[in-house]
């Protein structure tokens, strides 16, 4: 491995960390709303959140590229704000990854929130806890396995993305060239030995993530108030 490989690994970890943190903040209210609402919009919102699960990453990347480009609504907004254009930058990659990994955060959280049910919230209310207080003192601790699975899945999924990065970020060293793109470059250049190193790291990393998830699982089934 040389410095460009290490740069790619560092960039990938940075991207996945930032995206996971943003998703914890943005995914929690979405998951809470989906778990609690009786609105007819629930199905629509749930389907939109799940779209990245089935769409080819290139399709998602294509539309995000258009939206963030000079003629897209997001692009015009960022230019008007003096931020320049987002495609082929790290922030652009972060935004695209947030959409791409959204279901991996929202769905475990939604399941965890639904498993808690109504009762602990009612109990907390009769013990003088406001809804906001209840969320932090009851919901978050009881949904902890959901938060763990969501964070691990979102992180791992962001590490593994390729298609969206290629569409939005291209291949700029230390800015948008993540591990998966670096491997692609090595293979194109027929540098199989270097590909092996990175690819092997990814296999080990993915296995460890899944191992962590499956050992967490038994606890995820418990929780609630008895």
């Amino acid at each position: 491995m040389d410095s460009s490989d290490l740069g790619a690994i560092w960039l990938t970890l940075k991207l996945a960390s930032v995206v996971t943190l943003l998703l914890l903040v943005a995914g929690t209210p979405v998951a809470w709303w989906l778990a609690r609402t009786r609105s007819r919009l629930k199905g629509v919102v749930g389907a939109v959140v799940a779209l990245p699960l089935v769409l080819p990453p290139t399709v998602l990347g294509f539309y995000l590229l258009l939206a963030m480009g000079p003629h897209g609504p997001v692009g015009r907004l960022t230019e008007a704000l003096g931020l320049g254009l987002l495609p082929f930058t790290f922030p652009g990659l972060v935004i695209a990854s947030v959409f791409y990994s959204l279901p991996f955060m929202v769905q475990p959280l939604q399941n965890a929130f639904e498993a808690i049910g109504e009762r602990p919230l009612e109990v907390a209310a009769t013990l003088r806890a406001s809804p906001w207080d209840t969320f932090w003192s009851v919901v978050v601790p009881l949904a902890r396995p959901g938060f763990m699975s969501g964070a691990v899945l979102a992180f791992a999924h962001t590490v593994g993305e390729f298609g969206v990065v290629l569409m939005i970020g291209g291949n700029i060293p230390d800015e948008t060239r993540v591990v998966s793109v670096q491997i692609y470059d090595h293979v194109e250049a027929l540098e199989y030995a270097r590909s092996h190193w990175l690819a092997g790291c990814m296999v080990v990393f993915s296995f460890l993530v899944l191992l962590l998830l499956y050992t967490l699982k038994p606890q995820a089934a418990r929780g609630g108030a008895r």
Partner: peptide, 27 residues
């Protein structure tokens, strides 16, 4: 409800599993 000075005992005890007995009492 959370602003009413009442106590409520549910049919199932509904203790908070993430807290000890003392934690439940203190809640």
């Amino acid at each position: 409800t959370h602003l009413r000075p009442l106590g409520y005992v549910f049919q199932e005890a509904s203790l908070f599993d993430h807290l000890s007995v003392e934690g439940n009492l203190e809640f």
